[in-house]
Amino acid sequence: MSIQHFRVALIPFFAAFCLPVFAHPETLVKVKDAEDQLGARVGYIELDLNSGKILESFRPEERFPMMSTFKVLLCGAVLSRVDAGQEQLGRRIHYSQNDLVEYSPVTEKHLTDGMTVRELCSAAITMSDNTAANLLLTTIGGPKELTAFLHNMGDHVTRLDRWEPELNEAIPNDERDTTMPAAMATTLRKLLTGELLTLASRQQLIDWMEADKVAGPLLRSALPAGWFIADKSGAGERGSRGIIAALGPDGKPSRIVVIYTTGSQATMDERNRQIAEIGASLIKHW
């Protein structure tokens, strides 16, 4: 067993022997301040990774656009098919120029040779490549099948209805392509620590998230040296922004954090800054 596999296998073990965790309302004060600064709703939840206990939450059962955070769930569904012998990570998928959609920095470079399922998941999570996500959605049967996968996990809230990039439209009061912070946090925890996926697939999923290259201005910008984070960000229309993450000190994750916002007129930089400040408060009061 590799060191990384050992780390993920012992996530519940280490967490069980940690000192009790206590909620700190100071972080919620910052979440509410972010709402004021952005002029928009902000949803927040913080779960203990081992027990699933909610440590703090704000608007945990209000719907927010998922945006690209759905790509972690998508690759979880792909990995479940791999575990069941219905898919192979090494299978190569070929596609054409007509398949390319807006923001496809990886797939646009491989029109000639195609990409493997493993490479597509890596591109979808680490670079948020939209064509990679659409190609992977095709392998599982489309958005409705991802929703069905989530329902089978016990998540009857999260739903995907459309493809990239239309799913980022974020129309107010439109339930399409949305989740709730509580539902997303619980589902992410199941994917990373539950028995739904094999140990190898859980490790692969967290490795992809740990290698995320496009979430630097968010929670990662607030992390002290030595902290662990595996995350996936999302951005959408109407001032929408979000991030889902597993993080913790001492090089291992111990909490799940989900943050979503929508309806702001603020710039992307300002949305990023507010999420980073929430992260800084979380870490300060850990």
Rank of each mutant, 00 (worst) to 15 (best):
P25L: 10
K32D: 05
A34G: 07
Q37W: 11
L38Q: 05
L38S: 03
L38M: 01
G39R: 09
G39A: 10
G39F: 08
R41C: 15
V42I: 13
G43M: 02
Y44N: 00
I45V: 01
E46W: 12
G52I: 11
E62N: 01
R63V: 07
P65M: 07
M67Q: 09
S68P: 01
F70C: 05
K71H: 01
L73E: 07
G76N: 12
G76M: 14
G76H: 01
V78C: 07
V78R: 06
S80Y: 12
R81Y: 05
V82E: 15
V82G: 00
V82Q: 08
E87W: 12
L89E: 10
G90N: 06
R91G: 10
R92G: 04
H94S: 09
Y95N: 02
N98F: 01
N98L: 00
V101K: 12
Y103D: 05
P105M: 12
P105D: 09
P105T: 12
V106W: 00
T107I: 04
E108F: 07
E108Q: 00
H110S: 01
L111C: 02
R118L: 02
C121H: 02
I125T: 03
S128N: 14
T131R: 04
A132N: 06
A132P: 01
N134Q: 09
L135P: 04
T138Y: 10
I140T: 07
G141W: 01
G142F: 06
P143N: 03
K144R: 08
K144V: 13
E145G: 11
L146T: 07
A148M: 00
N152Q: 14
N152G: 13
G154E: 09
R159Y: 00
D161K: 02
D161H: 13
R162H: 03
E164P: 01
E164F: 00
N173I: 04
D174Y: 04
D174H: 03
T178D: 08
T178I: 03
T179I: 01
T179V: 05
M180H: 14
M180E: 04
A182K: 11
A183K: 05
M184L: 04
M184A: 08
A185D: 04
T186K: 05
T186I: 13
L191V: 07
L191F: 03
E195F: 01
L197S: 07
L197K: 01
L199T: 11
L199Q: 09
A200Y: 15
A200K: 14
R202N: 11
Q203D: 07
Q204G: 01
L205M: 02
L205V: 02
D207T: 08
W208C: 04
E210Q: 10
D212Y: 03
D212W: 13
V214I: 15
G216V: 09
L218M: 05
A222W: 13
L223P: 11
L223T: 05
P224Y: 14
G226Q: 12
D231M: 08
G236R: 03
R238V: 08
G239D: 10
G239F: 05
S240A: 04
S240H: 04
R241Q: 07
R241H: 07
G242P: 05
G242C: 12
I243R: 02
I244C: 14
I244T: 09
A246I: 07
P249C: 12
G251R: 10
K252S: 10
S254P: 06
R255G: 04
I256K: 05
I256W: 10
V257W: 03
I259C: 12
T261L: 07
S264G: 06
Q265Y: 08
A266Y: 14
A266L: 10
T267Q: 07
T267L: 12
M268R: 03
D269I: 13
E270W: 14
N272E: 00
Q274V: 12
I275Y: 14
E277S: 12
E277M: 14
E277W: 11
I278S: 14
G279I: 13
A280C: 12
S281W: 05
L282A: 09
I283A: 12
K284W: 07
H285K: 01
